[in-house]
Amino acid sequence: MAIVKNIVGLIAAIAVTAATMGVAVAAQGQAEPWQFGFQDAFSPVAHEMHAFHNLLLVIITAISLFVLALLIYVVVRFNRKANPNPSKTSHNTLIEFVWTVVPVLILIGIAIPSFSLLYYGDKVEKADMTIKAIGYQWYWGYEYTDHEGLAFDAVMLEEDQLKEGQPRLLATDNTIVLPVDTNIRLLVTAEDVLHAWAMPAFGVKIDAVPGRINETWMRIEKEGMYYGQCSELCGARHGFMPIMVKAVSKEDYAKWLVKAKEEFAGIAPATTVASAASVTQ
């Protein structure tokens, strides 16, 4: 009995710890310990993706239950004991018509919101600002194209460089600072091999292709720190290309721009080594 109580107590302690960690981490826009499902959405595109996923979940659940019911019916109704003399029927026009047309109609019903979502996330009609992300082996470079000369690299911090509260394998030396409630055009390319700029909280995952510029957009809804990673297998250090975005108010963003232009003045991408920690505070 004591063993059972100890096990229950241990499980409860683990659950409380995981829940506490989850709340703390979720506010930073990254995955939670023991997470089930998507990260919370903080962009219109991410909200639409979650809604589409929930719609598909309903559809596939209904299909799975229907198929399961048919299988149970067949097993019960047509097993050797219940049906010793099986029918010799080999063709049924109505059934074949139904099992051909119904799946087609289901796919059409799925395709309509799917294409709508693809179009919605593809390009912003009116961008308030533009930022360009460039994939290198193995880090990201960023250019604020609306502000000439404002560019820097973001390299992952090693464990001995992390400050309190910074997540391992996700924090970078320089932070992308973006304003909330702003339509942000994101241009993505690569210098060497294929990369992919992925930020789950914003519903963004776009390939970075050498010699090509891909485009998407986002509108961050809440201030905070958000984390993503390269999601294309790009080489030996693929797992060490994190993305760190700090979302701030428009007023704080304007102040950051003034300091950032001084901090990164004359520093070209792929050569930046200075940390932006003092700029982002």
Rank of each mutant, 00 (worst) to 15 (best):
S90T: 15
F66E: 02
T100P: 03
K88L: 07
L94G: 03
T17E: 00
L56W: 01
P103H: 09
Q39R: 00
D153A: 01
W138E: 12
F97W: 05
I106W: 06
V104A: 08
D153I: 11
Q39K: 02
V25G: 00
Q35D: 04
K88G: 04
M49T: 00
A31L: 06
Y119A: 14
Q28K: 14
L118V: 15
F66G: 03
T100D: 02
V98D: 04
A31S: 03
L65N: 05
S64P: 02
G37C: 07
A31H: 06
P86R: 07
V25W: 06
L107G: 08
S114A: 15
V67H: 05
S87Q: 02
A19M: 08
F38K: 10
K81P: 01
E32A: 11
T61A: 07
A69R: 11
F115L: 12
F42Y: 15
R77P: 00
L105T: 07
Y144I: 12
M129K: 08
K126M: 00
K126N: 12
D153N: 15
E148I: 01
N83E: 10
P33V: 13
A46K: 06
K132I: 08
I134D: 07
L70A: 14
K132E: 14
P44F: 05
Y73W: 03
A27E: 05
W140G: 11
F66Y: 09
K88E: 07
I131P: 01
A127K: 09
M129R: 09
Q137S: 14
H50T: 13
I72S: 06
H91D: 07
H147F: 03
T100R: 06
G37R: 07
F78Y: 15
A46D: 06
I108A: 14
W99R: 10
R77E: 10
A127D: 03
H147L: 01
F78D: 13
D128F: 10
Y139S: 09
T130N: 03
L65E: 08
I110S: 01
L94M: 09
P86V: 08
L94R: 15
Y73D: 05
A127N: 02
R80Q: 05
G141E: 08
V155H: 13
L57A: 15
F152Y: 12
W34N: 14
R77H: 01
Y136L: 08
E143P: 02
L56G: 09
G149L: 05
T145N: 04
L118F: 05
L70C: 12
G109T: 04
A51E: 11
S90N: 10
A154K: 02
A51W: 05
A18F: 15
G37E: 05
V98T: 06
N54F: 07
T20A: 15
M49P: 00
V16Q: 13
N85S: 01
K88W: 00
R77F: 03
L107V: 15
V45K: 14
L118I: 11
S43K: 02
E48Q: 11
D153Y: 10
S64L: 14
I60W: 04
Q35W: 00
